[in-house]
Amino acid sequence: MASSDENPGAMPPGDGSVPPGKPMTVGQHIIDKGAQMMQSLKPMKKMSQHVCTFAIYSHDMTRQIHTHHYVTRLNQDFLQCAVYDSDDSSARLIGVEYIISGGIFESLSPEEQKLWHSHAHEIKSGLWVNPRVPEMVVRPELENLAKTYGKFWCTWQTDRGDKLPMGPPALMMSPQELDLGIVKLDLVKKRDDKYNISTEALKTARAELAVPEAERINPQADYWKQHGKGFAIEVESTEMKKITAFP
């Protein structure tokens, strides 16, 4: 069993919907409000998009999750996303995804490319949506994103009931059009009902969207499709580099 899939073991009591801990005090609320007024919080203010989509565990593709990406664009070829389990104010930060253009992806080593997934199917099938933003507004962005690749590390496996971020991160894959890559219908319906959208209607509307054909997507991405194997992180002890003797 991979370290990223081991039972997390004993955890503090609680219902799992929020991390264990005491409620915030009035003083803590005052400090937070004061900090918001006095500090710039520039990285968070650069988050320009909310994307709702789905992800699949690389080491266990029977497990699929609904994700909310808050996207910051650093340039035309690189985006970074803080990934949450919901869009509520109490949402839990469950990971991070990096998104790169096809040109940057092609410059990576084959071993590194194995950790990345393509976005073409995810977008054209209507699974990738910007909630409450008209389709015609995001259409140019979708055409660009359909040619990108992502690397998503999940640091908090809330879907298995973890009350805290436990163990090592897990590598995530994007939905695909075959076998274990197909997103479960109940997950899609729950998302569609929440935002009053139709994934099937979006799929139809995106039928003419220019995306790379399957044979033009680098086969090192979506590695499982070609080789039937995923990736998992193992944690092991190792000698650390020291500047003085220990102890």
Rank of each mutant, 00 (worst) to 15 (best):
E135L: 15
E135T: 11
E135H: 13
E135C: 10
M136E: 13
M136L: 08
V137M: 14
V137K: 08
V137W: 03
R139K: 12
R139N: 09
P140L: 06
P140Y: 02
E141I: 15
L142T: 07
L142P: 03
E143F: 02
E143I: 08
E143P: 01
L145H: 01
L145T: 04
A146P: 01
A146R: 07
A146E: 03
A146F: 04
T148C: 13
T148D: 07
Y149K: 05
G150K: 06
G150V: 08
K151I: 15
F152W: 10
F152I: 06
W153V: 13
W153K: 10
W153G: 13
W153D: 12
W153H: 11
C154S: 10
C154Y: 04
T155D: 12
Q157G: 11
T158E: 03
T158W: 01
D159M: 11
D159P: 00
D159T: 12
D159R: 05
R160P: 01
G161C: 08
D162N: 15
D162I: 00
K163F: 02
K163V: 03
L164G: 09
L164H: 00
P165M: 00
P165K: 02
P165C: 05
M166P: 07
G167Y: 01
G167N: 06
P168C: 00
P168T: 04
P168D: 03
A170L: 07
A170D: 00
M172C: 02
M173Y: 08
S174P: 01
S174W: 00
P175F: 06
Q176M: 13
Q176L: 11
L178A: 14
D179L: 15
D179S: 15
L180N: 07
L180T: 10
L180K: 10
G181Q: 06
G181S: 10
G181F: 01
I182F: 06
I182H: 01
I182T: 12
V183L: 10
V183K: 01
K184N: 13
K184G: 10
K184Q: 13
L185M: 10
L185E: 08
L185C: 08
D186K: 06
D186T: 06
L187R: 04
V188T: 04
V188W: 05
K189R: 11
K190T: 09
K190V: 03
K190M: 08
K190N: 09
K190S: 11
K190L: 06
R191G: 07
R191L: 09
D192E: 12
D192G: 05
